[in-house]
Amino acid sequence: MPRASKRKAAPPSSSVAAPPPDQSRKRTAKATSKPRLKESDQIDNLFDTYANRSLGEIDPEGIESLCSDMKVGYTDVRILMLAWKMKAQRQGYFTKDEWQAGLKALKANTILKLVKALSELKKEAESPENFEDFYLFAFKYCLTEEKQKGVDIESSCELLKIVLGSQFHSQVDSLVEYLKVQKDYKVINKDQWMGFLRFCKEISFPDMANYDENQAWPLILDNFVDWKKEKSSSR
């Protein structure tokens, strides 16, 4: 949650917020009713612990205190994955629906279980079938304004480091270096963002021998490859 970082730490008082009126959502019988009931109540309680009472949502401050309770940095990729799991719509906020669906899917009704579930979640998000979805989510999650199409270079670089840094360390380093020196682009759009992932997955690095400019790569990657090649040849 890099964007939430500017908020000050959550006041402890938020944890004693009164529970909001119970909402009557449809709950189809699926598992045995007793533990489920209990579980959903616990999930709701947990939500109330972090939620901003006037908003009826967990706000950036709530998320920070959640992070500190879980002893996880708020820029940790796992928090982003949690947001992905919750299908969170708005950066820095969790609605009650998102929270309930997410925690239920993670089978977590306490902080302790949630912390444990996070490492499982990491495996899930990084699995081949899910990673692209998560990667795209991470980008869209940063689009905070209405009709916003791109993420500024600075944030894009941070985001790249968070989501791709562990898997494609050298690629991300080079790419970030390039993005910061180039002058042609001020924002990264979705197409370019997806291009980065495809580049990391498909192109041998650092020689980039199988990079073919005729393969309809976004122009920014053509430029990156030129820049990289020029740099290594001038050395």
Binding site: N189, D191, R198, Q215, A216, L219
Partner: peptide, 25 residues
């Protein structure tokens, strides 16, 4: 060609075009 490519990318950004999911060309 580079300018055409730029225009294609601009059209993708404005949702006139999209890339195919399987064949990126």
């Amino acid at each position: 060609p580079t300018e055409i490519k730029k225009r294609i990318e601009s059209l993708i950004e404005r949702d006139f075009l999209e890339r195919d999911n399987v064949d990126r060309k």
